[in-house]
């Protein structure tokens, strides 16, 4: 009896796949492209917000700069609260059907709207992740950078953001996986993603469960692969766990004041007894 039921399920799935696999695969591809592109753009938005929000500003700075920064911070705040505080499905409807009212034009291209909606939504979450990531960086890193003459942008680009990126990699992964799943709400404005295919196919042949079963598997594969790749990426960002000593570089050996490997008479010998016992 049970065997029979499972057999029925798999025949149904097989027949669905045989008939509609191009549609399913196109859906998967669209979902994947939308999730990847929107997550990347969302990250860029998040990082820009992060840089803008952390521009140092003291009471000694001139009034224009202070007012401008204040306004920027308020705008980012509103952006984050609005897009984090409303459902993405509604944002999609809002932007898609709102355009004619505000600009007198409507988007022709569903792709453009979808990418905008998902990116802007992701950006709102990322802005907070990046802000948290920047706050977690040791203030000494900022000081070290400023002390060798870097300005805020250089400090951010070369020192702080690379470290932030490494620290918030898990959150970026989270956002990506959420996007893989949540882009499914874009069917509301007619985006042809993986879930939209389910709606179409099951509507046509009334095989709701077999199609849902297939979709579940499909989404799970997408997210599992993503988790795996993200872990690999995190490991790469963490860098090598060991390093090689360089003893043969000709410049290294000839340019300095003394040569390696160090000998006992070296003034830099770590076992030097100079100054010992005279610590304050």
């Amino acid at each position: 009896m049970e065997n029979h039921m499972f057999a029925q399920l798999f025949t149904d799935i097989a027949s669905l796949w045989a008939k509609y696999h191009t549609m399913y695969l196109t859906g998967i591809l669209n979902t994947l492209i939308l999730a990847v592109v929107a997550t990347l753009i969302g990250c860029v938005i998040g990082f820009i917000c992060g840089i803008l929000q952390t521009i140092p500003c003291g009471p000694k700075d001139n009034i224009v700069k202070r007012v401008l920064l204040k306004i920027i911070r308020i705008i980012i705040r509103i952006y984050v609260e609005v897009f984090r505080g409303t459902p993405m499905i509604l944002q999609a409807v809002f932007i898609y059907y709102g355009m004619p009212y505000f600009f007198g034009v409507s988007f022709k291209d569903i792709w453009t709207v979808s990418i905008i909606v998902v990116s802007v939504n992701t950006g709102a979450y990322m802005a907070e992740s990046v802000r948290g990531g920047i706050m977690s960086i040791d203030p000494g890193q900022f000081e070290g950078a400023r002390a060798i003459g870097m300005n805020h942008l250089q400090t951010m680009l070369y020192i702080v953001l690379p470290q932030t990126l490494r620290n918030i990699m898990p959150q970026i992964g989270n956002n990506y996986i959420i996007n893989v799943k949540d882009t499914s709400v874009m069917f509301i404005i007619g985006f042809n993603d993986f879930f939209a295919v389910h709606k179409m196919v099951s509507g046509a042949v009334f095989k709701y469960f077999p199609s849902a079963f297939l979709e579940m598997g499909g989404y799970l594969i997408l997210t599992l692969v993503a988790s795996f790749l993200l872990r690999k990426m995190e490991k790469r960002l963490a860098g090598k766990s060991n390093y090689e000593l360089v003893n043969t570089d000709t410049l290294t050996m000839s340019a300095g004041t003394y040569s390696y490997p160090r000998d006992a008479a070296s003034p830099f010998d770590e076992t030097s007894k100079d100054y010992k016992g005279e610590k304050a």
Partner: peptide, 29 residues
């Protein structure tokens, strides 16, 4: 990034000073 010195020259200078402080073998650490 600050003094806009080309990469090769920056590397040579960095090695010179790292050597001065006895840390040249550790450049990859």
């Amino acid at each position: 990034k600050v003094s806009k010195i080309p990469k090769e020259e920056a590397k040579n200078r960095a090695l010179y000073y790292l050597n001065k402080v006895g840390m040249a073998p550790y450049i990859n650490a």
